[in-house]
């Protein structure tokens, strides 16, 4: 059964059709990567799924429920979670407090402290726990936000460029982490430009182009698709 299903989803800003009749079904338990050139509408699609934008038409189903009318926080309660493109940590607060805010709605007291400690060591940020989150390196901020996102124990994790600004080694580690989470049953939808990462984790890939689903398949199928190569080189407009 599809965990997330987008049905003929449309969004336009004035005359600009950013999301154009997108149909997309995500199976429970898969790692799905969303790729496409800049301006393809990937981040807009995320905002639609999260309820930050409301579609002009079309519906979004999550676990069989039509969540299109729901507000963002209600969608989070249903089991969605996100790491934004620009790291959205609470910059003025300590690393530990960032995680506390993410975890406190489900844990209290000693249990909460234990969960925070566990997550800190999982993220490799134990030494930085008292630092102000704004002072972390870019990669560490990414990790911290991923930590906050997964601490909600979501059924579907949305990752918008999780490895941007990371070294190849860090990118690989992030890939391993995503696979570990997936092995525990988390479905993942990731926007990513780093093809090494996509190759490492993706079980299925969707190519978005000019707001439409352009191609879909395994990474090998996508790489072999000449039309996909063409849009990345800017030749498919004609």
């Amino acid at each position: 059964m599809a965990l997330l299903e987008l049905r003929r989803l449309n969004k336009h800003f004035g005359g600009l059709h950013v999301t154009n009749s997108v149909d997309l079904a995500l199976d429970a338990g898969e790692i799905h990567c969303l790729i496409g050139p800049n301006g393809a509408g990937k981040s807009t699609l995320f905002r639609l799924i999260l309820g930050e934008y409301h579609p002009g038409s079309g519906d979004i189903y999550f676990a069989g429920e039509n969540i299109t009318p729901l507000k963002s926080f209600a969608r989070i309660h249903r089991g969605l979670s996100v790491k934004f493109q620009v790291p959205g940590v609470f910059k003025g607060l300590s690393v530990r407090q960032n995680l506390e805010i993410a975890l406190q709605s489900r844990h209290r007291g000693v249990g909460l402290e234990r969960e925070i400690d566990g997550l800190l060591s999982f993220l490799g940020l134990a030494a930085e726990q008292w630092q102000t989150a704004g002072n972390l390196s870019h990669g560490q901020k990414q990790w911290l936000e991923i930590g906050m996102a997964i601490s909600l124990k979501p059924r579907l994790l949305l990752l918008d460029e999780p490895t941007a600004g990371m070294s190849p080694e860090e990118t690989y580690q992030t890939g391993e982490m995503v696979q570990r989470l997936n092995a525990e049953g988390m479905t993942v939808l990731a926007i990513e430009h780093d093809m090494a990462f996509v190759r490492q984790v993706a079980q299925r890939v969707t190519v978005l182009h000019l707001g439409q689903v352009f191609a879909q398949g395994s990474i090998d199928q996508i790489v072999a698709d000449e039309r996909v190569a063409a849009i990345y080189l800017g030749q498919a407009h004609g």
Partner: peptide
Amino acid sequence: NVIVAIRENPERAEMLGYDI
């Protein structure tokens, strides 16, 4: 905690499930 989280980043706070 939630109040200061909203000050720091309202979008992130909402995406942690808080009705800000």
